[in-house]
Computed example of a mutant assay.
Amino acid sequence: MRRSLKLAAVVLSGSLGMASLAACGAKSTDNNSASAGAGGSSFKVGMAYDIGGRGDQSFNDSAARGLDQAKSELGATINEAEAKSGESEGDKEQRLKSLVTSGFNPIIAVGFVYQDAVNKVAAENPNVKFAIIDSSSADQPKNVTSLTFSEEQGSYLAGVAAANKSKSKHVGFIGGVQSELIKKFEAGYTAGAKSVDSNIQVEVTYLTTPPDFTGFADPGKGKQAAQGQLDKGADVIYSAAGSSGTGAIEAVASNQAGDKWAIGVDSDQAKQPALEKYKARILTSMVKNVDKAVFTYIKSAKDNSVQGGVQNFDLKAGGVSLATTGGNIDDIKAKIDAATQQITSGQTTIPTAP
């Protein structure tokens, strides 16, 4: 299990900030840029991770890449705060408040589970800029920007790939938590698969339901769910389940027949070091370019050009895409390209609910 407490030394604004950050499981890194001065860069960016945190080989890691780019290219001092399994709403609020107290601005919350906490803390701190990934609400304060994605569009392409590669005409979908967000992945994937073969069977399994969000951070559950789908005859399995999806990939890659495929999510999982030994059986990944959204937002914060409301990153804007690592979908490139063109032109509209 990932450590919930990570702390690296950094000069923060006062001992209270250091103490409160340590209490909420945060770590800071100083970029040591020439403009930083004795106390580090004056541009300080905070990130509060979802369950699984940096190192999940998926969603959080994609956000982390955007943060790292801001550190490298924009001279930001960064702080990363880790989530804990089974935490309360108060824990999320305290994590955000600790970043505020320590002078981090902007602050990025990774995942829809932060919506209520972001709304409350942002309302209490109108001079601090906040972003939340994968969520928006009608009562969101003006100093909050929602960074959302058209997951259903990328998942549709994953479904097209799955149906074209399936020999059994039976594919699978594993969702980490049965939420409105993950249902977008399911809806797009199913629609994409059925656009190729209306009779294809799509097996659907969710690992947990709210308020249990451990389905995003339990590879064992992911592996068990994938094995169950393999046993039922599925030969291509797509997981939208955070680090739990690594377990599903392991189950598929370890199948004795050696002819099953896994589809990764969020990051190009065939390129992730921890999944190196399984990459030969990763057909593709539905890449959600959270890093692009995060870096774009942080740059706008530094340029004082942040806009509140919702910023959506769709297929046309490069917010979602299919990975081509390994060349496993090269033979169906024309079909993927055709489906892409139909979506970006508006000819095909993808459902957002199953």
Results as ranks from 00 to 15, higher is better:
V10Y: 06
A23P: 12
S28W: 01
A36G: 15
A38F: 01
K44S: 00
A48G: 13
A48K: 01
G52M: 05
G55Y: 11
G55A: 12
Q57S: 15
N60C: 02
S62E: 12
S72A: 14
E73T: 07
T77I: 02
E80L: 15
E80I: 14
D91S: 14
E93I: 07
V100F: 03
S102I: 02
I108F: 12
F112P: 05
Y114R: 00
S135C: 08
Q140H: 07
N143M: 03
V144L: 10
S146H: 11
E151I: 11
Q153V: 01
S155Y: 02
Y156V: 10
L157P: 07
A161C: 13
A163R: 11
V177F: 04
Q178R: 14
G188C: 14
Y189W: 09
Y189S: 10
K194R: 15
S195F: 05
S195N: 09
S198T: 06
I200G: 10
E203T: 08
T205C: 06
Y206Q: 04
L207H: 13
T208R: 09
A226N: 07
Q229P: 09
Q229E: 07
Y238C: 00
A241Q: 11
S244I: 05
A248L: 11
I249W: 15
S254T: 08
D266Y: 07
D268Y: 12
A274E: 15
R281V: 08
K288F: 03
A293W: 00
T296G: 03
K299Q: 14
D314Q: 04
G326L: 05
D330M: 03
A334H: 09
I336Y: 09
D337F: 04
A338L: 12
I343W: 00
I343G: 00
T344R: 00
S345M: 01
T349A: 12
T349C: 06
